[in-house]
């Protein structure tokens, strides 16, 4: 298991994310393709995890399952200790809304809606009143340094700015975890650096960050690297520094501070869904 300093919680708390023997098999005509072939792992609150692997290794499929967008064919996926197999689609949507923030390679902002409206969109589904939505969206935009772009259409923003809007959208619901799928994949090196720095800052403030990446710097900064090959994890949970394909040694994992500084993202040290700010009635 991870270094106890990584997780600012009591040992009794279930891990935020736990996969047990996850498989995902897609039917392909008459045959079947196994994208995931039995994956076990845990991610604790506040961790910084990178998922790496060659194209077609199944890492995107894994991220979709982690993000509750897809269900495993077999195996168990527990989110905050709750077996997600017992949750219907509406409850999965609710969890995605309240507990998970997504960041996509191609930003996936809705054009025709301003940056502010894009950022506020998750709050619409959360049933937050308009006034509060605007306040919180402005707050999130301020956090990513785009206050002056609030009323711009995504088409008027640069790639880096768009991805920062997307990050603000992921942050606005104060989720427990941010799942990022190649967040710097479509950005030039300078915007990449901005986005990268921003994500690391957020993580250091206590947010759990799971990133699929080809970006070596992100993998380097991750406390832990899950390497997916051929639908399986290799070098999983390696407790000590490990070596990459090129033989380079991974740096010491950085750890989250035991007490998150005051900020937008605070995860209370309670257990289960309550820790995510979800009343039991919301989900079960």
């Amino acid at each position: 298991m991870a270094d106890p300093t990584v997780v600012p919680t009591t040992p009794a708390q279930p891990p935020l994310i736990e996969g047990r023997g996850l498989t995902r098999i897609y039917p392909m005509g008459d045959s079947e393709v196994a994208a995931l072939r039995g994956i076990d792992f845990r991610i604790e609150l506040g961790e910084n995890v990178a998922i790496i692997g060659p194209s077609g290794s199944g890492k995107s499929t894994l991220l979709h399952i982690l993000g509750l967008l897809d269900r495993p064919t077999s195996g168990q996926y527990l989110f905050a200790g709750v077996d997600t197999d017992t949750l219907d689609d509406d409850r999965l949507a609710l969890l995605r809304n309240r507990a998970i923030g997504f960041i996509f390679q191609s930003f996936n902002l809705v054009s025709g809606e301003s940056a502010l409206e894009n950022v506020a969109a998750p709050l619409v589904y959360a049933g937050v009143k308009r006034k509060e939505r605007v306040e919180r969206a402005e707050e999130a935009l301020a956090r990513v340094g785009l206050t002056d772009r609030a009323h711009h259409d995504p088409s008027q923003l640069s790639g880096g700015q768009r991805q920062r809007v997307a990050i603000a959208r992921a942050l606005v619901t104060r989720p427990a975890v941010i799942l990022a799928d190649e967040p710097t994949g479509n950005l030039d090196s300078r915007s990449s650096a901005d986005v990268f720095t921003l994500l690391q800052e957020l993580q250091s403030e206590g947010l759990t960050l799971v990133t699929i990446t080809h970006d070596q710097r992100i993998a380097d900064r991750a406390a832990r690297v899950l390497r997916v090959e051929d639908g399986m994890l290799v070098d999983h949970d390696a407790p000590e520094p490990t070596y990459l394909d090129d033989g380079r040694r991974l740096p010491e994992p950085t750890t989250a501070p035991a007490t998150p500084p005051s900020g937008a993202v605070v995860v209370p040290p309670e257990s289960g869904l309550a820790a995510l700010g979800l009343a039991d009635g919301d989900v079960s």
Partner: peptide, 16 residues
């Protein structure tokens, strides 16, 4: 389609 996928990812239910 992508917008719909995105909206689902950020928490839209079918009925939304």
């Amino acid at each position: 389609v992508r917008e719909i996928g995105t909206r689902k990812a950020i928490g839209a239910r079918r009925r939304d």
